[in-house]
Nucleic acid binder design. Structure first.
Length: 347
DNA sequence: AACGCGGGGCC
DNA sequence: GGCCCAGCGTT
């Protein structure tokens, strides 16, 4: 039996029952695919259900506010996905009359839909013969066929894409694409793959050559940036000080507190730090350290300090980015995880 | 081609 | 602590 048939046979015996597999509605599949980008199924599943409940049709999504979308997305990360979905939902209403496209060439033009997602939607919703190439597929193909080109090199991406596309010819596209990804997720896992019970092990290059734990190859690692965030919590008459984060940095468009970012762990003890605080909150202001958190992200480590403000005055004309809003309204806004965690404990 | 973008789970 | 997860957009 060839590779594809083994994969499909394995899939029929071992597949999970996932909600987006029981539909060919391109909108629903799009919802699931965007949510699952760089996201584990278990983490994305509750968000998928929540979004489908709030926005049953693409029209409902298109009519939502960005704040509402980001609020529903809160906690999932990579928030540009949510913003791009709103943009694309509007596009689908305007350019496609509310009918979500199912052809690869149309899908690839939409914001937030790249090669993987266009292949996924077009194959699942339309049985178009486009091979998905995601992290699972890279791993399975690299190990089974012994492809040793790095998966994140230009040549590697080309090789894997061509190999994947050659394998899907003459297959049922939807079934085969689902199967190879599920096989990668459950059987041919990154760590501790289940080789001893794998039906493909006898013809697997990596198993034969004892390279399971080094394949696939990947070039270098991301450099992690360290940052120091000092947040200031001003509460007065059921209102709290807040600001919206600007483009060009993490958590774009989401809401946090007035912030002084420092360049290291010591700087907040120095006079300049106090000058900034007095500039923002007046000369009579007092601060009290409320909590410290080390917030770990893939590309950044953020050391966060929360200071409570006392006896403060804000000149809202001078500091137009800072707003004072009802605490209950503030809680309804979208916040990054480190902020929503703080809110739960302190507000 | 390289980089920025979240949060969580696993080893 | 490092790696990976149904990747994509920007520069």
């Amino acid at each position: 039996m060839n590779f594809q048939n083994e994969i499909i046979k394995w899939y029929k015996l071992n597949k999970r029952d996932l909600p987006w597999r029981s539909t060919t509605d391109a909108y629903v599949i799009w919802l699931s695919e965007i949510i699952l980008q760089q996201t584990r199924v278990e983490q994305g599943l509750p968000y998928f259900n929540k979004f489908l409940q709030h926005f049953p049709k693409v029209e409902d999504f298109a009519n939502a506010s960005e704040t509402h979308v980001l609020k529903l997305w809160q906690g999932l990360g990579y928030y540009s996905r949510g913003r791009n979905m709103l943009f694309t939902a509007k596009q689908v209403m305007e350019l496609h009359g509310g009918i979500f496209p199912v052809k690869y060439d149309e899908l690839i033009k939409l914001k937030g839909i790249g090669e993987y997602t266009a292949a996924a939607i077009s194959s699942f919703a339309n049985n178009q013969s486009k091979a998905v190439v995601d992290g699972n597929v890279f791993r399975v193909l690299s190990r089974y066929f012994g492809v040793e080109e790095p998966i994140n090199s230009t040549l590697g991406k080309k090789e894997f894409t061509e190999l994947a596309q050659s394998l899907i010819e003459d297959q049922q596209p939807s079934l085969y694409n689902q199967a190879i990804m599920e096989f990668g997720a459950l059987q041919c896992k990154p760590k501790s793959p289940l080789c001893s019970i794998c039906p493909l092990r006898l013809n697997c290059f990596a198993f034969k050559h004892n390279k399971v734990d080094i394949l696939p190859l990947k070039l270098k690692k991301v450099k992690i940036r360290e940052r120091w965030f000092n947040y200031f919590i001003g509460v007065k008459d059921d209102h709290v000080l807040t600001k919206q984060r600007k483009p060009g940095d993490i958590w774009e468009q989401m809401y946090d507190f007035p912030l002084i970012e420092t360049l290291d762990n010591e700087e907040y003890l120095k006079p300049d730090f106090w000058n900034q605080i007095k500039y923002l909150f007046g000369n009579e202001v007092n601060i009290k350290l409320l909590s410290q958190k080390k917030h770990l992200l893939t590309h950044q480590i953020i050391y966060v300090q929360f200071f409570g403000l006392d006896n403060y005055i804000v000149n809202f004309n001078l500091h137009a980015e800072i707003k004072s809003v009802l605490i209950e309204d503030f809680k309804a806004l979208p916040h990054p995880k480190v902020i929503s965690n703080f809110i739960e404990t302190y507000l």
